[in-house]
Design a protein around this nucleic acid. Structure first.
Lengths: 196, 196
DNA sequence: GCTGTTTTGGAGAGCCCTCTCTATTTAATT
DNA sequence: AATTAAATAGAGAGGGCTCTCCAAAACAGC
């Protein structure tokens, strides 16, 4: 017994992703999102209580999608910790290749999307995701027989940060990822882990 | 035969660096810079023709300072290309440790500071700096006996991008760099180069 | 067809930001 | 002391953005 929705929140989020990828988080204004979708600004506020709430959702939806595949790659097949690390590193690049606009968001940080001013529910989701990653990295470390803050950092570099940096190099210049990017990420991960 | 300057452009730039480091490039508004220095907004416009001109100067001053030391580290002492690469990687971290606020700027890209809308003179400076780096990396590649796009990328990762990523990991969370960061950058660089 | 509920559509208040314009101040020179 | 170049000081026009508010529209159930 109600008027049917005409814009669902996904459409607004998709537009927000596009805007952020093309011109940075600052370009994601409520007015710009509304215009991109062809909706009046009131309709955006019907779905998202505020600009911080929208930015939080854009960030979290993207990061959670990314993490889902990353956890799967890391845990997949029992081929030992080094193979798992390689698979995770490769996944970062493969996911970015499949969704370059979403990947462009990850190159920013939550702070650039206003974290700190988010609704508490969003802050909690961010903490939960962060915690899951932290735990997975700690387990990987243990499986590799490494310990200490320094080893933990080398592992994190290998399976997350360096692959993302490879993506950053190209996306920042507006280029596509080269065909060898996955292999470079995988090889770099093994090289860093082997450097122990 | 003139009234002596009361604010020099350096003070405005310093304030802009602080604002950008703390809240991102978007927070560097002409009004905020003026307020931070205690000057009226007109005085900022006396030194910088426009906001894009100010942002360009903030970025270029920082990057050029960074590059100066980086070239020195890379070219210093004739200890062979691998030692030079290591020194350059270490320098990235050491420079960031000494100037964490300036380093926070480098974690953004020129696009975040409005490149594309800069005055032509600034765009030219950016191109020149970029070209110097490109040339230095090509020479390093040659000295290492590497060639091809993929090798070039691995070298760039080793001596610039991975060290910056180590810095990013910590600065993004508001932490100081750990004491082992320089060594980690140097070791990572060698590991990546050796992975060839 | 009527009712009730949800959503759209759009105007506009209030705020901040960029940039302009016009005094006014200051000190070296004459 | 008068002159003059260079800089400060600050008000305000114009524009965009956030968010509010209310009337109009659309559909399910009776």
């Amino acid at each position: 017994m109600a008027r049917p929705p005409r814009y669902d929140s996904g459409r607004f989020l998709d537009a927000a992703v596009r805007l952020a990828a093309e011109a940075g988080p600052a370009a994601v204004t409520m007015a710009a999102v509304a215009k991109a979708v062809g909706a009046p600004s009131g309709s955006v506020y019907h779905r998202f209580a505020s600009r911080p709430a929208l930015l939080a959702e854009v960030w979290l939806r993207t990061v959670e999608d990314f993490q889902e595949g990353w956890f799967a790659a890391l845990g997949d097949g029992g081929q030992g910790p080094r193979a798992a690390a390689r698979a995770a590193a490769v996944h970062v690049v493969a996911w970015s290749r499949a969704q370059p606009r979403a990947a462009a968001l990850l190159l920013y940080g939550p702070a650039d999307f206003g974290q700190g001013g988010w609704p508490e529910e969003s802050e909690a989701r961010a903490r939960a995701g962060h915690e899951r990653v932290r735990t997975a990295l700690a387990e990987l470390c243990a499986d590799l027989g490494e310990d200490g803050a320094r080893a933990a950092e080398r592992v994190a570099l290998a399976v997350v940060d360096v692959p993302l940096t490879i993506v950053r190099r190209h996306l920042r210049r507006g280029e596509d990822l080269p065909p060898y990017a996955e292999q470079l990420a995988g090889d770099s991960a093994l090289a860093l882990l082997g450097a122990g």
